[in-house]
Amino acid sequence: MNKISFTIALDLLKNKAILIFGFILAFLGWGMFLLESQPEKTILALLQVTLIILPLVTGIFATVYYYNSREFIHLLLIQPIRRSSVIRGIFIGLAGGFVFSFLVGIGLPLLLFYPTLASLYLIIAGLLLCIIFTGIALWVSTHQQDKARSMGIILLFWVFFTFVYEGIQLLIMYQLAEYPIEQPMLWSVFFNPVSIARILVVMQTEAAALLGLSGAIFQDFFGSLKGSLIAIGVMVVWAVVPYFLSRFKFIKRDF
């Protein structure tokens, strides 16, 4: 199993696309800190990168990689190896590759130039987002025969989590403005890993005070250590569940 994930991770790191992705992340991460004199603003810009670009690239690339290495997977399946080890190897290899490029590109400059709690949370959130979207991509890919369809579905997931979900939340809040909806809204955040990641980080920056009275419920929850641990826990669930769904399918599937 370890050998499979190691091979895949190494293969990924040699891949041109992932190199370019890592280079872009590094360019943004290091460049912004070197150009911008206010680290508080830089971390918000890097947050946007982590929330928008990271899930998109991770999801799309994992899908493409899965389909492109189909023959390799078939070859592996011929060997006397358990199917669960193969899928676990693929998952860990893919996620490991992305996590590595994220850590070098964005994690390292954050730790070097702005070693705060907000940076730490941003690194944890970005890391988990990499794993989550790798899992979702595998889940979609194992269920679909067609590569293009998988790409479409993963793009839909991305659009839904980064844009649509919060749009719906805002719409609901507009409609139900007269009701005490803060508590349900707090719970609804847990159904979107991108939102959890964003709120985790924003709560650690000074922007938290902007939330004011109505944001107090969020601040009480996410501002406390217990709340942030629960939020990170929910993200871990988000990372694990799609992987287990794909593993379940992968084991049963007829290739």
């Binding site: 947050l47 805002l170 924003v202």
Partner: peptide, 15 residues
């Protein structure tokens, strides 16, 4: 108008 919407601060949708 909707003060509770502040938790969407810095969200990609708002951007």
């Amino acid at each position: 108008e909707v003060p509770s919407a502040t938790f969407l601060l810095h969200s990609p949708f708002v951007r």
